[in-house]
Write a protein that binds this DNA or RNA. Structure first.
Lengths: 115, 115
DNA sequence: TGTATATATAAGTGAATAGTTATATATTTA
DNA sequence: TAAATATATAACTATTCACTTATATATACA
């Protein structure tokens, strides 16, 4: 886990983004696998626009990428980001989110085929 | 650098505290040595109450301790805090603050004896 | 004991923020 | 091409937040 010194402004900006419980949890989930908005929606008690707005902030900071796959837009952590080492490090302190991933898999909002 | 999994609320609260540039820099300075308010005041463009209020938030979260030494109250990072491993880790990403420490030493607001 | 210094607290203000509902845009499918 | 689904954006609101000035409290020292 490499440590790239960043300037104080950029570092505090990233930490502020991670300082929101919803965004922190979204990031922890994206560390497991890419997810679309409707999947994230299964594990948070907020509206769809709220999720979209959080993802937009993470994207604007270069922390996540998006790829459209037909109807869905999948979000993932941007490993090319200068801040990725920090993100990875911070996320190592988060509690396990396997239960939330399981919840998404169970509700399966995108009708993902299991085979 | 030990990783203690924390609950998501506590973790996001600490990250939010570190997500402010002034508090992040204060914390980086306290990693070097304990400092009083009047010393911190030398390296920030904010009022004395502003510094005190930031320190209060860090103290309320258990991240810093204070010790009165006569006229001055010295603040230091609380190594006994459950969040200290995280703090230490996050601060390893901050740029060097040796210049700011030098600036404090030079202005020497507490008339500290150099011998 | 009175004055200076260090720090904290109170009160107020403007900006930022996270959420909401309503609506627009894009894609898929009947 | 029309309806359904997924997502984004716009507009608004309530709350949080960092800062300020004014003032209180605590210690040191003449």
């Amino acid at each position: 886990m490499q440590k790239v010194p960043t300037d104080m402004d950029q570092l505090s900006q990233v930490l502020k983004l991670m300082g929101d419980k919803t965004r922190l949890t979204i990031s922890a989930l994206l560390m497991k696998r890419e997810l679309c908005v409707c999947e994230l929606l299964e594990v948070f008690d907020v509206s769809q626009p709220s999720i979209s707005q959080h993802l937009r902030k993470l994207k604007d900071a270069g922390l996540v990428k998006e790829t459209r796959k037909g109807q869905w837009i999948y979000y993932s952590l941007n490993k090319e980001s200068e801040s990725y080492p920090l993100i990875e490090n911070v996320l190592s302190f988060t509690p396990d989110v396997a239960d939330k991933i399981a919840q998404i898999d169970k509700s399966n909002p995108t009708q993902r085929c299991g085979c």
